[in-house]
Design a protein around this nucleic acid. Structure first.
Length: 208
DNA sequence: TGCCAGGCCCTCTTTAGGGCCTT
């Protein structure tokens, strides 16, 4: 267990009907964990009914069936609750540009906003774990020998895995570069460095 | 019937192309 203080963030993951809200895709499940001082202090999980039948591909990919969604609350109802949950927190997701698009689209539909900033565990992992076979969430969990129950492509399970990956990233930064409490801003900066100079950036110390 | 996105990032680059990620 990691006991060293870590950034307080909410790690989130959407399951959706497809890849693009601009093409009419909607969220069907949101999962999130709130991390404080390296510990999970709260979770959020809810299925949501997008108002139309989801494809067989998405049923197979996520294990979420149309039958399961019939009795689920609407996207509007769930996302209103989720907007309350994330207020005041910075946000993390694996391939955050994807989840941010859906978060922005769903919240726009209900005239809600959020104040936090996003960081992307995938962009950071591409720089820190350059020797990993690839940078999918599942591969990074395997690569870092992160404990898991084998459930993937469900929102809460994926957000929990991403949260463990996030804590592993914080731990590795501490171990490699003696940075005990890397700030959220520093993690955002890492994701914008080139692969070749991220090591020098973290060794430099000017960001301490 | 067949196809559909978007951002990041590398390189055989920058007047571009294509792979990686997410569902």
């Amino acid at each position: 267990m990691i006991t060293r203080p870590a950034n307080s963030v909410i790690v989130l993951d959407f399951e959706t009907t497809g890849l693009s809200p601009n093409q009419g895709d909607r969220a069907i499940e949101i999962g999130a964990v709130k991390l404080q001082n390296g510990m999970v202090v709260d979770t959020f999980q809810a299925l949501m009914n997008p108002g139309f039948k989801i494809s067989r591909f998405i049923e197979d990919y996520t294990g979420i069936s149309n039958e399961l969604l019939i009795d689920a609350a609407s996207c509007e109802t769930v996302m209103d609750r989720f907007a309350d949950f994330i207020q005041g927190s910075n946000l993390v997701a694996h391939n955050a540009s994807f989840d941010k698009r859906f978060l922005d689209a769903e919240l726009t539909l209900i005239n809600r906003e959020y104040t936090g900033e996003f960081a992307c565990s995938m962009l950071i992992a591409r720089r820190l774990y350059q020797q990993a076979p690839n940078h999918t969430l599942g591969s990074l969990v395997d690569f870092n020998k992160i404990e898991n129950d084998g459930v993937f492509h469900r929102a809460l399970a994926d957000s929990e895995m991403t949260a463990k990956l996030w804590l592993t990233i914080l731990e590795d930064i501490h171990t490699r570069y003696f940075l005990a409490n890397p700030t959220f801003k520093l993690l955002q900066q890492i994701s914008k460095k080139s692969k070749s100079n991220v090591h020098a950036f973290l060794q430099n110390g000017s960001h301490r």
